[in-house]
Amino acid sequence: MLPEQYLLLQFWLPLILSPLGVGLAIAKDQSRRRVGQLLLILIAIALILHPKGLDASNEGWVLHLLMSLIGPLAAFLFGAWFALFSGPISVAPLPRSVRPFGFALMALGAAWFLWMLFMARPSIDGVSNPWWQHFVTSLLTSLVVVAGFAGAFAIIMGDGRQKEASIMALISLASFGLLIYLLAEGTESDDPVFWRSASWGVLGDLAGMLVGGGLALATFVTFVWLGEKRMGVPNEVEPLSSEESARVQEILADNVEVGE
């Protein structure tokens, strides 16, 4: 069974081209950067102008999931932005009074996400988003590991960072507790059996991503190494002629005032 043409043109093709757009957008050459930015804008437009209902395909449901997350994500990101730049930093500081507002926005983002989790699972006309459980269990599993790592990093590498480490440990433990609660009790809309199945499947996906991604990176490093190895030793450079030496000395004398 082949996908419909609109999915190929307005979902898969833009996604496949996105690494090219990112690569061009970060190139040194100005013209390439412009092409990359234009390509990224076109990719965004193609994804936004999805011609059919989002509940008509698995791909559409992914876009719906992204749209559902815009609210809590924006609240969290703006909150982090305000809290970060209203702290005692010398780079583009905001008024100090904004800092509590930033933390409040971050808390709002977290509360919004919890509300979606327990009370309002993303859905269209009563049909729940099929990727929601996969996303939530992936997020909580990743948060346990990443926040735990960040906490350990703060305490091992930092200087007197106990407070920061304890907050990161709290995030890690809270994510773990929430994950276990979902697996044991479920939510209003979903039985724990579905959460357990989603979490169990996610473990397979995440482990596969680690192995497959790691293998791909090792392959890439091997290709780069082979390329470097084949380049050979560069030819020896001829020593400077007497005229060239004189010219170099002249330039040095003009600029550094050597020998005076």
Partner: peptide, 26 residues
């Protein structure tokens, strides 16, 4: 699609954890 959703979740986990850590550290 499953991998893309998981990638999104991993990116968000990094953003949330290190965003909070950076805010606290500074």
């Amino acid at each position: 699609i499953r991998l893309m959703v998981a990638d999104l979740a991993i990116l968000l986990a990094f953003g949330i954890s290190f965003g909070v850590l950076l805010t606290l550290v500074t």
